[in-house]
């Protein structure tokens, strides 16, 4: 697992049924692009988060395939429909096999 990886997610705590909300996500990650060389001139192998997804009760909101062209500390902003109270699940997949997850609960009142 890459060192110091920490996800941040911003989801409103409450909404009305059927509302469209804005979600922001940020995760600390180097996103080593595979294009850089070390001091000896050897190419530093790619080591990135390759997939990000956001789901709500098993239904997908968005899935993103990332390349080395996504900046360090990948950021995404997108919109989701809130059908009812429940958990938004966020998943980041690292090239090294690590999976980082975060959950945010929203209540529909």
């Amino acid at each position: 697992m890459a060192i110091g990886v920490k996800p941040r997610v911003k989801v409103p705590k409450t909404a009305s049924a059927g509302d469209v909300i804005t979600i922001k996500t940020l995760i600390s990650h180097k996103m080593e692009s595979g294009q850089r060389k070390d001091k000896e001139g050897n190419r530093i192998p790619q080591s990135i988060i390759n997939t990000f997804s956001c789901d709500f009760k098993g239904q997908n909101v968005i899935t993103v395939s990332l390349s080395g062209a996504i900046s360090t500390n990948p950021y995404f902003q997108f919109k989701a429909i809130v059908p009812e109270s429940g958990d938004f699940e966020f998943t980041w997949n690292d090239d090294d096999g690590s999976v980082y997850t975060e959950t945010k609960t929203i209540s529909v009142g």
């Binding site: 469209v20 909300i21 804005t22 692009s33 595979g34 294009q35 789901d55 709500f56 239904q59 997908n60 909101v61 968005i62 899935t63 993103v64 395939s65 990332l66 390349s67 080395g68 062209a69 996504i70 900046s71 990948p74 950021y75 995404f76 902003q77 997108f78 919109k79 989701a80 429909i81 059908p83």
Partner: peptide, 26 residues
């Protein structure tokens, strides 16, 4: 870019709209 691929966004049934923002390297 040396590798032209940047990202692919796939929208699911609960996408509130088909738009997304991110930050990229050029």
């Amino acid at each position: 870019n040396p590798n032209p691929k940047v990202a692919k966004f796939t929208f699911g049934p609960l996408a509130g709209s088909q738009d997304a923002s991110t930050r990229i390297r050029l």
